[in-house]
Computed example of a mutant assay.
Amino acid sequence: MNPPGTPQAPGGDRSTRSAGSTRSAGPARTHDHQASGRGALNRDLIVSAAIEYVDEHGLAMLTMRRLGEHLGVEAMSLYRYVNGREDLLEEIVRRMVDSLHVDSARRELLAGPGWQAYLQWLAHAVRRLARQHPQLFPLIATRHPAAPWLRPPLRSLDVVEDFLATLVDRGFSMENAVMAYRAFTSYLLGYLLLEVSTMSGRTVAEDSLTEVANSPPPSPMPLDGYPHIQRLETLLSQDHTDLEFELSLEDMLDRIERLLANDRS
């Protein structure tokens, strides 16, 4: 994040221009350090406003200029706090996914010997996030993760550490915990992408696919403080997509077979 003292790009903002400059009449702008009706401009406020803007207008419409207009400030003022649109999109994804991290209050609710309560809570939390932000969920699903084995929509180190620790602490072997992580994320991603595409009136996540095609790959993230991920990184990195597809297909066929059996009974 650039601190407030970081120099701006050439041209500056309106507050730094000569008072004698002539401009065509237009809507009055607030001071660069204060967004209209929102208080002092900062990174958190900018990210919240970007989420709000995309929810209303769609991802393709988000530009720094339009976001500045939405906040009532010059676009150049935003660069004091975010390093452009790519940085802003990364922060949006981080903000949304971090809401799935189990804090101390939630952990008390999920305490107990079983693992089902945690997976139930997590699945519903991800679905709630997708339904609240159908224009942004495809971005979470398709944007480059920080590591190739971080599978969307659970693409946060904190969330994956929660997942693995919860299952291992409740009797899962490390291998089975990783298999459960893969199966769980595949199920959520497939179902919820279909659901939000229906909600937003899009058959595919066009905006997000364009974003991921144009975005650079992220830098590797340090894993200090994530002991389960460190121990399981090799397993997480293995490619079992063919096997996972076949297992998921068999599971689906078994479900259909059970439906047929119920119809015949």
Rank of each mutant, 00 (worst) to 15 (best):
L78E: 01
L78P: 00
V82T: 15
V82I: 12
R85W: 07
R85N: 09
L89V: 01
R94P: 02
R95N: 08
M96I: 09
V97D: 03
L100K: 01
V102T: 02
S104K: 14
R107V: 00
R107M: 04
L109T: 12
L109V: 13
L110G: 05
A111D: 11
A111Y: 07
G112F: 06
G112H: 02
G114D: 15
W115T: 11
Q116G: 02
A117V: 10
Q120I: 07
W121D: 13
L122E: 13
L122R: 06
L122M: 12
A123D: 08
A123R: 05
H124W: 07
A125R: 14
Q132N: 15
Q135Y: 14
F137L: 07
P138G: 14
P138V: 10
T142A: 09
H144Q: 10
P145Q: 06
P145W: 03
A146E: 10
W149T: 09
R151V: 14
S156N: 06
S156H: 05
D158T: 09
D158M: 06
V160T: 02
V160K: 00
F163W: 07
F163Y: 09
L164R: 10
L167A: 02
R170C: 04
F172E: 11
S173W: 00
E175D: 14
A177L: 12
A177H: 07
S186Y: 06
L189K: 11
